Amino acid sequence: MSAPAPSAVLELLKPITWFAPMWAFGCGLVSSGAPLAERWPLVVAGVLLAGPLVCATSQAANDWFDRHVDAINEPNRPIPSGRIPGRWGLWIALIWTALSAALGAALGPAVFAAAVVGLALAWAYSAPPLRLKRNGWWGNAAVGLCYEGLPWFTGAAVVSAVAPDMRVVTLALLYSAGAHGIMTLNDFKAIEGDRALGVRSLPVQLGPERAARLACWVMALAQVGVIAALIWWGASLHAAIVGALLLAQIALMARFLTDPRGKAAWYNATGTTLYVLGMLAAAFALAGGAGT
Rank of each mutant, 00 (worst) to 15 (best):
A114L: 07
F112C: 10
A102D: 00
T97Y: 03
P78I: 09
N62V: 09
P75C: 09
C55T: 10
V30A: 06
V69A: 14
S32W: 14
S58E: 01
W96C: 04
A61F: 09
R67K: 02
P41K: 03
R77M: 10
P75L: 11
W88C: 06
A101R: 03
G86R: 12
P41Y: 04
A124G: 13
V111F: 12
R87I: 07
A71D: 14
L90A: 13
V69R: 09
L90S: 14
A56F: 01
R83A: 14
I95S: 02
G108V: 11
G108L: 03
R77V: 12
D63V: 05
N73C: 08
V30H: 02
P35M: 15
L36H: 10
A127I: 03
L49E: 02
N76K: 11
C27F: 08
D63R: 04
P128S: 04
I92G: 11
A56R: 07
G86M: 10
G82A: 05
N62K: 07
L121V: 07
A60H: 02
A122C: 02
I95L: 04
F112W: 11
A98F: 00
L119I: 06
A106N: 08
A124L: 10
W91G: 04
P109G: 03
Q59M: 09
V69S: 13
L90N: 09
A50G: 07
N76T: 13
A110F: 05
S58H: 01
A98Y: 00
E38T: 12
S32M: 12
G28L: 07
S100H: 00
S58W: 01
A115V: 08
V117D: 07
P35E: 15
P52K: 07
L119Y: 00
A93D: 06
A115E: 02
L42D: 15
A71C: 10
A115Y: 01
A127W: 01
G46D: 11
T57V: 08
A56G: 09
D70E: 05
A71G: 11
C27Q: 08
E38Q: 14
R83I: 05
L42I: 10
I79A: 14
A61R: 11
E74M: 06
V44F: 08
D63E: 11
R83K: 13
G51W: 10
P41T: 12
A45Y: 07
H68T: 13
C55L: 03
L49G: 03
I92V: 13
W64A: 00
G28R: 06
I92Q: 09
I95Y: 00
D70C: 06
A124R: 06
A93C: 09
N76Y: 09
R67N: 02
P128M: 05
A122P: 01
V44Q: 05
C55S: 14
N76D: 15
A124M: 13
P80S: 05
I84V: 15
A101N: 01
S58Y: 00
A113Q: 12
S58R: 00
R87M: 08
P80M: 06
D66F: 02
L29M: 12
A127R: 03
